[in-house]
């Protein structure tokens, strides 16, 4: 479903160029739930941005559903993103002057008017993420954790084939995080959604089928519970 080949990304700042991704290779099957872990600055968010078509790689390719993201024009990429992808950003990126409801509904407007069906979906999501009663509240008046939950509902509202989530539980306490992860799991299970979730939390990563360990711009190792020595490796990786 998702094939990443030899992906690299350099950022230019003045004369300085830094290579943040240095040849990432990764395959993700349709309907798979993958967690990405790795030290701060190792390039996890950068990888997610490229996967979401929000930025373009310096080298290498990404295929989603047999379509090369690189081959698309910016407009084609936008349409593709709207149809296929849901994105939870590390810093939420909500529209601060709009309400909870309006933010969540935002990805749906491109397809025309909101039907009753769509409105019901929005209401259900608001309840699932625990924001009942806050429908009409402007998001810049919400706490960090509440904003994060708006971002999650927005990412799920078009029932995307692929959900990209950057630290979706980073600002939530254990109980709230559990609710969000359960929601992901439910979507994943019922809609065969592919999920790629960046997290620093092993208790969240445990929800995934596989854990991709990221270090210094490359995939260091892919962990699955079938590997004999995965726990030792993870323990030293997290040290």
């Amino acid at each position: 479903m998702i094939t990443i080949e030899n992906l690299s990304k350099e950022f230019l700042q003045g004369q300085q160029s830094t290579e943040v991704l240095k040849g990432v290779n990764l395959n993700i099957k349709e309907g798979e739930f993958v967690a990405i872990m790795g030290p701060s600055g190792s390039g996890k968010s950068t990888l997610l941005q490229l996967l979401g078509g929000l930025d373009v790689p310096t080298n290498g390719t990404i295929q989603i559903d047999q379509k090369y993201l690189n081959g698309m024009t910016e407009k084609e990429r936008t349409i593709f993103r709207r149809k296929k992808l849901g994105f939870v950003f590390q810093n939420y990126q909500l529209l601060s002057t709009l309400t909870v409801e309006e933010n969540i509904a935002f990805p749906l407007h491109a397809d025309g008017k909101l039907t009753n069906e769509k409105n019901r979906m929005i209401q259900e999501l608001i309840e699932s993420v625990g924001l009942d009663g806050l429908n009409r509240k402007r998001v810049n008046l919400l706490s960090g954790g509440q904003q994060q939950r708006v971002a999650i509902a927005r990412a799920l509202v078009n029932n995307p084939a692929v959900l990209l989530a950057d630290e979706p539980t980073g600002n939530l306490d254990r109980a709230k995080a559990e609710e969000i992860l359960s929601l992901f799991l439910k979507f994943h299970h019922e809609n065969k959604q592919t999920i790629i979730m960046v997290t620093h939390d092993i208790f969240a990563a445990g929800f995934a089928d596989r854990i991709v360990l990221f270090r210094d711009g490359v995939v260091d190792r892919v962990i699955s519970r079938k590997d004999g020595d995965y726990a030792k490796y993870l323990a030293s990786f997290m040290a």
Binding site: I202, F203, G206, F207, R225, Y230, A231, K232, L234, A235, S236, M238, A239
Partner: peptide, 18 residues
């Protein structure tokens, strides 16, 4: 570190079961 590995193994197995 060894104890941590033991715990992590437990975490991943129990989370899967959960």
């Amino acid at each position: 570190e060894q104890q941590k590995a033991m715990i992590i193994e437990g975490v991943l197995e129990l989370t899967k079961l959960k």
